[in-house]
Computed example of a mutant assay.
Amino acid sequence: MNELAATDRESVCRWLTEHIARHRKADPATIGPDVPLAAYGLDSVLAVTLVADIEERYDLLLEPDTLWEYRTIALLADLVSARLNATTDSPGPG
């Protein structure tokens, strides 16, 4: 089982906040979970980078346009944690 599969929504939200703050060279306290990512300068290049980073960190496959549908850290954290929990709750093969 993936060690990160049991990650809860709050830890995903925290990681996303810190990750976006690093990209922006900003204090994580200035990044709000309900602020549209576009307000932080999210462009197509950063969106692709962020999706790839999420996929690598959480071992998930996301659509390239995920960030245009899930426009805030809170919404994105909901999606990631739901997918992780669905993976955890799924019965294994056999």
Rank of each mutant, 00 (worst) to 15 (best):
A82L: 05
G94T: 13
G41F: 00
A74K: 01
L75N: 11
E10F: 01
A52G: 14
A47I: 12
P28L: 08
D65M: 01
L79P: 12
E55V: 10
D43T: 14
A26V: 09
E56H: 10
R83Q: 15
I54H: 02
A5L: 02
P64L: 04
W68Q: 13
E55L: 06
D78L: 06
D8Y: 05
A26H: 06
P33H: 06
E63I: 09
R83I: 08
E10H: 06
N85L: 06
G94S: 09
W68G: 10
Y40P: 12
S44V: 13
D34S: 12
A39D: 12
N85G: 08
S81C: 05
S81G: 11
S90M: 02
L67H: 12
L42M: 15
D89E: 12
E63S: 15
C13W: 01
D43V: 14
V80M: 00
R83V: 11
V48M: 07
G92N: 04
T66P: 13
P28F: 07
R22N: 11
D53A: 15
V45C: 04
L16S: 09
A52T: 15
A39M: 06
P91A: 00
V45S: 07
Y58F: 15
A74I: 10
T72K: 05
A52Q: 09
A52H: 07
W15M: 02
G92C: 04
L37G: 12
E10W: 02
A82M: 07
L62T: 14
D78I: 06
L37N: 07
M1W: 03
D53W: 02
P91I: 02
D8E: 10
I73C: 03
A47V: 11
S44G: 12
L75G: 14
C13N: 09
E69S: 10
E69Y: 00
D78M: 03
T7D: 07
I20V: 12
T66I: 03
L79G: 07
G92L: 03
L75Y: 00
P28H: 05
H19T: 15
L42P: 12
L84I: 11
P36K: 11
S44P: 14
A86V: 03
L79Q: 08
E10V: 09
Y70P: 10
Y40K: 08
L16T: 13
L76D: 10
P36Y: 01
P28C: 08
R14P: 06
L79K: 05
A47E: 11
K25C: 03
L61K: 08
P33E: 14
A21R: 03
G32H: 12
H19L: 01
R24M: 08
E56F: 09
